[in-house]
């Protein structure tokens, strides 16, 4: 099977997943106890007020026609109106999404920069004090909640030492990267802990392969052996892990944005929950799910491109 046939098959495979996501999100809001109208208006709302909200949300229609309406709107790219801010949900998400995506991408770059050298160091000094100490540190780091790490960074490096700003986005590319550094680092460390551990194991495995002995016997320098042969092969198994964790990274962004007061979609979601803004909650959940599905697909395609054995 050629690469493009694999791409096509992978895309077709994801169609039922997308369908199920849509149905689940639709049902999530409608079948769980508590209806939006009474939640928004509180206990003492009059029946007419509840009916009015239900009519404007369309929640008074039978469930099947609600679903058709939902699907129809979705296909035309309409996620409804925010109940609190009276602007289209797509507009809100469009404004906030770039911040979140930038934060996630930044965190991924930092995580890569941290984990590749550390994984090599740990693998080459396997079971020596350095390796053991780093392993312990990562284990401890995995028990550290994101919001706590963020608060610590914010206080120590931001408020006390004043090395980094404590909020805001900054201006210009340099300013933005500078302002986003602490939030991105907060997110990156958790990811780096997972990736380094897996990459270390992968490197140790690759180092035992015959082709590495052969590359060394050819007289290649250790730098070329490690950089070109070991790293590339060790990365293949790590790419999938990157993809899976990128999804969790976006989840982590929700918390990080709250801690650092960044105007991303995570903050939007939390605000929407406290404001009982159901169209925004629904639209955002949908957006997150679609985004992560796309990341999964890209990960699979990238992995197949690195290692054609995946689809042969």
């Amino acid at each position: 099977m050629g690469y493009w046939r694999f791409v096509l098959r992978r895309l077709l495979q994801s169609a039922p997943t997308f369908a199920l996501i849509t149905v689940l999100i639709f049902l999530l809001v409608r079948l769980l106890p508590g209806d939006p109208a009474s939640a928004m208006l509180g206990d003492r709302a009059t029946d007419e007020a509840v009916a009015r909200i239900n009519a404007s949300l369309g929640t008074d229609l039978p469930i099947a026609s609600q679903f058709l309406r939902f699907l129809g709107r979705l296909l035309s790219g309409d996620l409804g109106q925010s109940q609190a801010l009276h602007v289209p949900v797509t507009e809100l998400i469009g404004e906030r999404m770039p911040v979140t995506l930038l934060l996630a991408a930044y965190a991924m770059v930092l995580a890569t920069l941290i984990s590749i050298p550390l994984a090599f160091l740990m693998a080459l000094y396997r079971d020596r004090p350095l390796d053991i100490a780093l392993r312990g540190a990562f284990q401890l780091g995995l028990s550290m909640p994101t919001f706590y790490l963020g608060l610590l960074f914010l206080t120590v490096l931001g408020a006390h030492l004043r090395i980094f700003p404590v909020g805001g986005l900054g201006r210009g590319p340099v300013g933005i990267l500078y302002h986003l550094f602490l939030p991105a680092l907060t997110l990156a460390l958790g990811l780096a802990a997972v990736i380094t551990r897996s990459l270390r194991a992968a490197i140790l495995e690759v180092l035992q392969a015959d082709y590495i002995d052969f590359a060394r016997a050819k007289g290649l320098s250790e730098r070329v052996v490690l950089g070109r042969h070991v790293l590339r092969n060790a990365l293949i198994s790590t790419v999938t892990l990157f993809g899976i964790n990128l999804g969790q990274l976006i989840g982590g962004a929700v918390i990080t944005e709250t801690v650092f007061s960044l105007p991303g979609v995570g903050r939007l979601l939390i605000d929407a929950i406290f404001g009982r803004d159901y169209p925004v909650i629904e639209g955002l959940t949908m957006c997150f799910a679609v985004l992560v599905s796309i990341i999964f697909i890209v990960t699979d395609l990238f992995q197949a491109w690195l290692d054609p054995r995946v689809y042969r």
Binding site: T17, L32, Q248, L249, V254, A289
Partner: peptide, 23 residues
């Protein structure tokens, strides 16, 4: 299929989404 979908959501977002509706 269900596993595919559930791992698709960021776990935190899904839990937050459900709590958003339940309170």
């Amino acid at each position: 299929r269900l596993v595919d979908v559930v791992v698709t959501f960021p776990f935190l977002v899904l839990v937050i989404g459900i709590i958003a509706i339940l309170g």
